[in-house]
Every structure is written in C-alpha cells, then in structure tokens.
Amino acid sequence: MMKFSILIANYNNGKYFKECYDSIMAQEYKNWEAVILDDASTDDSVSTIKKIIGGDRRFRFFENPANSGVGITKSKLIELAEGDVCGFVDPDDAITPTAISSSMANFQKKEVVLTYSIFMSCDENLRPLNPFRTRQVKNNDPFFFNYPIQIAHFVCFSRKIYLQTEKMNTAMRISEDQDLYLKMYEKGKVKFINEVNYLYRLHSGGISQNDNKSRSYEYFAKVIFNAMKRRNLKKINGRNIPDEYTHSKEIYDLLEYQHSIPYRIKKKISIFAQQIFG
C-alpha cells in the first residue's frame, strides 16, 4: 500500500490547527504521515501544535531556524517527506474523510502524476460557503498554463516524478504552488476528482487572501513565462513570446485568445474525447 505524505507549512496558524488535525485523523486511508514545518512563527503555534499531536509518530514536526518564506518551506517539506504521494494542507484548512483515498485510487494508474478536486470556501469557523467549481483539464497540451485557474485544491502529486522536475522555485513567496503544478503537468497526466475534498478557510490572517492579490497576479505571470521557456515555445496563437520577462500584461495578453467562445468549445470537445478514449 502506497504511503501518503500530508505536508503542512505553518506560520502563525496554530490557533486553527485542531480542525486540520481532526480532519487528518478522520481519514479513510490509513497509510499516511503528516510532516509539519514551522516557519519561525511569532505566536504560540509551536507549543500549540506539539500539544495537539502529542506522541503520535505519524506526525513529524520540524522548525525553520529563521523565517524563510513559503517557497523554501514547501520545498523542504517535500524533501522531508517519505511518502509515495504528497499533498499540501494548510494548517488553517481541513480535508474531507475520503480526500486521500480518492486521490490514491488514481495513482494506481502509472501515468497519473497529479490529482486535484473541488474545494469548498468556508467562513472563519470552517462552515461551508461556496464550492470552487472546476473541471478536468486537457492533458498533454503545451499551451496549458492553468489560466484561468482550474487546478487548485486538494492537489496531490507523485514525489518520485516531482524529483525528476526542476523542483519548486524556492525564491517564490507567492504562486509557488502554480509553479509546482505546471512542472508536474509537463511530466504526465493530471486527473480531476469531482468531489469536495478540501475545506478552505477564509479569515483575516490568510496569506493568499489579503494584500497579496496584485503581487500574486504578477508572480503567476512569471510562472507562466517560465513554463513557456521551459517548453521551448516561440509563438502562441501566432504571436511571438518575448525573449525576456518585462511585465504581466504582456504575458496575459498572449493568452487572451483562450477566453474566446470558439476556443472554449474546441477545448470542451477535446477534453470529452480525452475522457472517452483516455
């Protein structure tokens, strides 16, 4: 039975961790470990989390000596993991009881390198608000950049295949997840699980929910540009890809055609054919 590594990057979110912990303990799939790396929290997160996990050896707790940022922290977590498949869970969020088992069922197929599902936006008390509607993406498409975003939560990936990529960009403090997803996408098939497997808490302390929206837009453009270069693309829809990155608008303008109705219809047909014929 393959082992699953739940990866948790914590910074000042210990007060929410109990519900995350409870959701891990409730997993239908039993062969898992939880690797927690605290990024030099300034609150009582370390003592709070250690108290909750107690002496359970399935939980492995580590600390960064100094605040390093999410790119470095998440990269370290993957290196620390011992499982065959990894998935990030934020300490202020939670996963549903079948989240891991649903994902692992797909990794029995060797060509699958990444899975994702529907996530539910929740209020500060983790009460459901609205699901993030997503769908299966087209595989093996050099012009797929996850824009607009379809691959979000609960994303799980093969650790063995990840180690064959350029790995996570540790310099990034935002959009490091999108960088990871696109690198994995280039290595095999991704599979959408049509279930709500992740509970995403909205609260005032959420890193991705506050003043980082505009910066995230910029970082994501850089991620897309790097993917274009990694794939040796020269043109997109007849337009030249710049040699150097200058600003986000230039990159997003290249992808504007993907919002057109003819393109979207063609994409739906190709995804339907992909699901029928594999």
Rank of each mutant, 00 (worst) to 15 (best):
residue 4 F to D: 01
residue 5 S to I: 05
residue 16 Y to H: 14
residue 20 C to L: 10
residue 23 S to K: 09
residue 24 I to D: 02
residue 28 E to G: 02
residue 35 V to C: 08
residue 35 V to K: 02
residue 36 I to E: 01
residue 38 D to G: 02
residue 39 D to V: 03
residue 39 D to S: 06
residue 39 D to F: 04
residue 41 S to D: 03
residue 43 D to W: 11
residue 45 S to F: 06
residue 49 I to L: 04
residue 50 K to D: 08
residue 55 G to V: 00
residue 62 F to V: 05
residue 64 N to I: 00
residue 64 N to W: 00
residue 65 P to L: 04
residue 73 T to L: 08
residue 77 L to G: 00
residue 88 F to W: 06
residue 91 P to M: 04
residue 96 T to E: 06
residue 97 P to C: 08
residue 100 I to T: 08
residue 106 N to P: 02
residue 114 L to R: 01
residue 116 Y to F: 14
residue 119 F to M: 13
residue 125 N to L: 13
residue 131 P to H: 03
residue 136 Q to K: 14
residue 148 P to Y: 10
residue 162 Y to H: 08
residue 162 Y to G: 02
residue 163 L to A: 13
residue 172 M to R: 09
residue 173 R to V: 10
residue 175 S to W: 01
residue 175 S to M: 13
residue 176 E to P: 02
residue 177 D to R: 01
residue 188 G to Q: 10
residue 189 K to N: 14
residue 195 E to L: 10
residue 202 L to K: 14
residue 203 H to Q: 10
residue 205 G to M: 09
residue 208 S to T: 11
residue 210 N to R: 12
residue 213 K to L: 12
residue 217 Y to I: 04
residue 221 A to Y: 00
residue 223 V to A: 00
residue 226 N to H: 07
residue 227 A to W: 01
residue 241 I to V: 03
residue 244 E to H: 13
residue 259 H to N: 13
residue 263 Y to V: 06
residue 265 I to V: 15
residue 266 K to N: 10
